[in-house]
Nucleic acid binder design. Structure first.
Lengths: 204, 204
DNA sequence: GTCTATAACCTGATAGAC
DNA sequence: GTCTATCAGGTTATAGAC
């Protein structure tokens, strides 16, 4: 991720196709995407897509795996870090999610809707739950609220970070926010969400 | 909504098609849905779909309008109610959203992803923002936190109610929750979310 | 590796019999 | 109103020339 300044024409054909596929698949979803859209976006001949990736489905699987890693990878480095406080972990996760999705606004809706439809692509995430529940992060939450399912708080954290981006297109079309206001709000939320989560963990 | 016990065979052909369209469209989205899927689900002949609704697109518009009303209608009755406290409004909105989506699990992802793709279907929600910002609900939030954009709190409320349902398929596939646990958690959240929102409004 | 042309298939929609 | 048969158009994928 050091240098992303390369123009499309500097990339190999294969990478140009992948870059175009990332863009089109995440924006429109698998079903609404035509291989022609990808070819056009990549500025290459349609036949080359099949030459490099065999099929639309194969290309999709590659992009999907990549995007799932991106989306779920945010929490991973924080799970078993024993040298940070819970509050610090929450701050880092908040910041990482808001930064990631700010630069990939289509990511959450893509992941969440494609996972629901395609029963094949998450063999890679299956079974990660045990690792989650044995994590340091979960233990730190349980110390604060031993009688409550700790998933509640993880869900709240993710909800408040991710869901506003999912609502953003709707809010815009309602005229409730413009792009500038939304960006400003999400920047504010980097500070606010950790405060809110803390107050939730102390509530009742 | 008094009696939903009618079997499919009791419904008119037109209503059977609409019922099937609700199910298939909300589950798979517009692009991934084939008119043949709907016909099969409705147990009718494919040609009848066009006989009653002219086209796939026309049928979709009907279902979409219905579903948008369902989704955004939840908040409407609370917006300008002058005889309830903020806390009471939050409790009612929470309860209404969780009940609605419990019975229509595919609703949020359907609304949110179809709105992003189709630039035609929300002429009906466009411009509702002014009504929102002039509402009693917003004023009551501003009384509590005058210096903060009140949208933050509405977003938090919706996030915590809606987003867990959107994550549910993922959580299931990870093995993080089973159906029973999830249902139990969402029932708990009816009580918890209002408490959490209250603590957020008093934080800092 | 890249292109053109086309095959093979799928999907929405309709014509016309009943 | 409902059915069968079929058309027209679009989409993925490949064959074959360069």
């Amino acid at each position: 991720m050091a240098k992303k300044a390369k123009a499309d024409s500097d990339l190999s054909t294969e990478e140009k196709i992948k870059e175009a596929a990332r863009k089109v698949f995440t924006r429109k979803g698998y079903a609404a995407t035509r291989t022609r859209d990808i070819a056009e976006e990549a500025d290459i001949n349609l036949a080359l897509l099949n030459y490099y990736f065999r099929s639309k489905g194969k290309l999709f699987e590659i992009i999907m795996a990549e995007k799932m890693q991106q989306f779920f990878g945010v929490m991973e480095p924080m799970l078993n870090n024993t040298s940070t406080t819970l509050q610090n972990k929450i701050e880092r996760i908040t910041s990482a999610y808001i930064d990631l999705i700010t630069h990939n606004p289509d990511l959450p809706l893509f992941i969440l809707s494609e996972i629901r439809n395609s029963p094949e692509h998450f063999l890679k995430i299956t079974g990660k739950a045990s690792a989650l529940f044995k994590s340091v992060l979960i233990k730190q939450i349980q110390e604060k609220k031993p009688d409550r399912n700790p998933l509640h708080f993880l869900l709240n954290l993710m909800s408040m970070c991710v869901f506003p981006f999912v609502m953003n297109p709707v809010l815009k079309k309602m005229g409730a926010v413009d792009e500038k206001t939304f960006a400003k709000m999400m920047k504010e939320r980097k500070k606010l969400i950790p405060v809110w989560v803390k107050s939730m963990l102390e509530a009742e």
